[in-house]
């Protein structure tokens, strides 16, 4: 009987330690069900929500696509350089992440401008220089406004819209999104709240561990 109890104890311990070691971030967004044929049989397959194809210019006037970010996890956000409301605080939080993961080559930051007409490549280059950050690790992107809004809403699940009543003329979310190497959304955080950004930094470490073999 005692041996039995002990065994159960050991098993419980194993279960607990196992669940701890395989801490995984959720895969977010609505997955799609599709029918597929496997060996002549029709099966249902789930396709997770992923970031759609895009092609925008960064502050160096280089094209950035999903291929540019291949093999990297990244944090995405939406902003504009003349934003008087929440953008500077978001940028100061992103700088914390930038500095915290200085030597981490598998992490990138991607900031989409929602005012691309004003935020030209030149404006973004000056902005990045003033923040003291490099395009090797942090892309500031501009391009067709409708395409950026469409990508924001359908892929990153954030709101972005022109709104005359909002400060600076644009309404937008302060969200930071954590994207994995398979283009999946693995976390959403409020980029204006320091504690949430602390959580994000912890989650970045968890996500990076998924790719360590």
């Amino acid at each position: 009987m005692r041996v039995c109890n002990l065994l159960i104890g050991v098993m419980m311990l194993l279960v607990v330690s196992c669940t701890q070691s395989v801490e995984r971030l959720p895969v977010m967004g609505r997955s799609q069900l599709v029918e597929r044929e496997v060996n002549g049989k029709t099966v249902l397959d789930t396709i997770p929500h992923t970031i759609a194809d895009f092609k925008f210019l960064n502050q160096d006037s280089s094209w950035v696509t999903n291929q540019t970010l291949e093999g990297k996890i990244y944090v995405a956000d939406f902003f504009f350089t003349s934003c008087p409301s929440i953008c500077p605080i978001m940028k100061s939080q992103l700088i914390r992440i930038y500095k915290e993961f200085e030597g981490e080559d598998d992490l990138r930051l991607v900031s989409y401008s929602i005012d691309p007409q004003f935020d030209t490549v030149g404006v973004l280059r000056e902005y990045a220089q003033r923040l003291g950050v490099s395009s090797d690790r942090w892309h500031f992107l501009t391009g067709d406004q409708d395409e950026i809004y469409e990508l924001g809403e359908s892929s990153y699940m954030v709101t972005a819209a022109e709104d005359e009543s909002a400060p600076g003329g644009f309404l937008h979310s302060g969200a930071f999104l954590l994207i994995d190497k398979e283009r999946r959304v693995r976390g959403v955080y409020d980029g204006t709240v320091e504690e949430q950004v602390n959580t994000l930094m912890g989650d970045i470490r968890v996500l990076l561990k998924e790719y360590v073999n």
Partner: peptide, 10 residues
């Protein structure tokens, strides 16, 4: 900034 520290050179 909360402490009047500004933001880098921006």
């Amino acid at each position: 900034g909360q402490e009047g520290e500004g933001l880098e050179r921006l």
